[in-house]
Amino acid sequence: MNVLEVSGLSKHYPIVAGLMRREVGRVRAADDVNFVIQKGETLALVGESGCGKTTVARCILRAQRPTAGEIRFSPADGETIDLAPLSRRALRPLRRHIQMIFQDPYASLNPRMMVGDIIAEPLVVNGIPAAQRQARVLELLDLVGLPAVARLRFPHAFSGGQRQRIGIARALALNPRLIVADEPVSALDVSVQAQIVNLLLDLQDQLGLSMLFVAHDLGVVRHVSDRVAVMYVGRIVEVAPTVELYATPRHPYTRALLAAVPKSDPDARDAAEAPRGEVADPANPPPGCAFHPRCPFAIDRCRVERPELAEIAPGHFSACLRATELPV
């Protein structure tokens, strides 16, 4: 059963110029994005800067209003509602079902509120009586591995990893169906990163959460995700079950991303050639396949024809004209 179905999602930012604010162009931050997240599943959304992964995440959270497309969300079994056209007011009762974990554990906690109040805020806002709030806060602190006294302290007393736990506790307060985690471990030290990844895995097992996990590289994603969607310049270029994506990537960009992760093996140096060039500018993407200027497999057709995402094996989608010809 799907908790989230995103179809045709686009977010364009106009480029305006001059006194009259005339639109002279558009940044297609996200362009015709389609994916689903099943109940209890983690979908990783991976890509480099400017690929649109954060835009997609914020559209799903409706921190931004998409330009086009549908975001069909199921707040309870058997119910679906399209979030895309809803007004701020109409969204408010639905917000409790989709929560976010932020990248920056420092900026995401109000420095003027005690930890207990930060975690309790979702409860207050959604009218949970004070008597139950206290018990729930203690329960949540325990769930994320923080001592009960933490509620009486201010965020500045905590390390980055502890703050991230506080952010997770806040996100879980209302028993959401879907968690959107925006690079939740990329600002943390390696040893702390591992703790938070494990915590997310445990919580998902315990609570049956669905999760959209946004990441900029393929390192941690391997551990947390069931399926991976790779984005490049506003579009999804490949979607596949995690194991399959790592074993048999069917898009040259996915291959490049995999090759670019520095391997922790001194004997495996120089194995892969770094991809040429740099990430394309989403305001001015290359014609045809946006990756073709960097692609070692590009042919003339790639320069003019934009490949659509197509299923090349069961559950494995790739937006590459030569998807089936790539060496494995």
Partner: peptide
């Protein structure tokens, strides 16, 4: 634009709050 303000909005807090 602060994360913690966005966080408050995402839990459904009103503009006034």
């Amino acid at each position: 634009e602060e994360d913690f303000v966005i966080a408050a909005e995402l839990v459904g807090a009103s503009q006034l709050r």
